[in-house]
């Protein structure tokens, strides 16, 4: 069996930094073992020429330097992630301990146990909101699990929900004011969602307009109705207005796409040079 030590040592000879000595040795040992195992497999499969085996295995490991660098990078990233995760857990624990202390302190001093639990609810909502909108670098591997625009919408909705809850408790559910908070918030969210994706040139932005334009009008209609600012039987017209905007957008978008098709047709009519005779398959 061939010894791959010489090849491995030569390829990785640039890595002289003592900081990498241990990981380099580990990498070399692991790789040498893998290459020897590969030789066993190839021999079992019927390849008997030692030189061909050696050349084949070397060709499969020609990126060994790059692989070592990638492995070190990944190890460093994993170590940073681990530290970041531990820090996040610690800060979360401290945050909730603080929230708990605040809850008990307020409850004992004011005696209003019937309301003070809202501190816990608010803490949980603010915590979730922070997780949703915190900078990308604090997320796992620097990637958001939820698109930022959706995350902001959810965060805003949760705040609105908290305000609704507080108002419901304060007014004992006797008025519509608390519900107005929710419908107004939904109006604002759907309003921005109907055109911001287009400005951001997002994929499928047009579908946001088609859906959110009528929804915005529905929520505005409900909000104004609840506030008594617009009669319900007139406010329905807003919904039709929203649907009309949706349809108009669809027509404009289709026309634009048609324009793209016309350019495609033009390109198709251009002569395409092809090799004489051969249409292979």
């Amino acid at each position: 069996m061939k010894d791959y030590t010489e090849f491995i040592d030569l390829e990785l000879s640039d890595f002289n930094d003592p900081a990498y000595e241990e990981s380099l040795e580990r990498f070399k040992t692991k790789r040498k073992t893998a290459m020897r195992d590969r030789e066993v497999v190839l021999r079992k499969r019927g390849l008997s020429d030692a030189q061909v085996i050696y050349d084949l295995i070397i060709s499969e490991n020609k990126d060994i330097r790059h692989e070592f660098v990638e492995e070190q990078k990944k190890a460093l990233e994993d170590s940073i992630e681990k530290r970041l995760f531990r820090m996040k857990i610690l800060l979360s624990v401290v945050y909730f301990i603080f929230a708990g202390i605040t809850y008990f302190a307020v409850s004992f001093t004011t005696g209003s146990w019937g309301l003070s639990w809202l501190i816990i609810v608010a803490s949980i909502i603010f915590y979730i909101d922070f997780l949703l909108v915190m900078p990308k670098t604090l997320h796992y591997k620097g990637e958001r699990t939820i698109k930022f625009s959706y995350a902001v919408s959810i965060a805003v909705m949760l705040i609105a929900l908290l305000i609704w809850l507080i108002l419901e408790i304060q007014t004992h559910g006797d008025t519509h004011i608390s519900w107005v908070v929710l419908t107004a918030t939904l109006s604002i969210i759907t309003f921005f969602d109907s055109f911001v994706p287009r400005l951001a040139k997002e994929k499928y932005a047009e579908y946001h307009t088609y859906l959110c334009a009528p929804l915005t009008c529905v929520f505005v209609h409900v909000t104004l109705g609840l506030l008594g600012l617009l009669e319900w039987h007139i406010g329905w017209l807003l919904v039709f207005f929203g649907i009309a905007i949706s349809l108009l957008s669809f027509v404009i978008d289709t026309y634009r796409k048609y324009g793209l098709r016309a350019r495609a047709e033009k390109l198709r009519l251009e002569k395409f040079e092809h090799k004489e005779g051969e249409l292979n398959g």
Binding site: A264, E270, K271, F272
Partner: peptide, 11 residues
Amino acid sequence: SADKNKDDRFM
């Protein structure tokens, strides 16, 4: 028939 296809840039 073949030329018609070949004229198509995206055949």
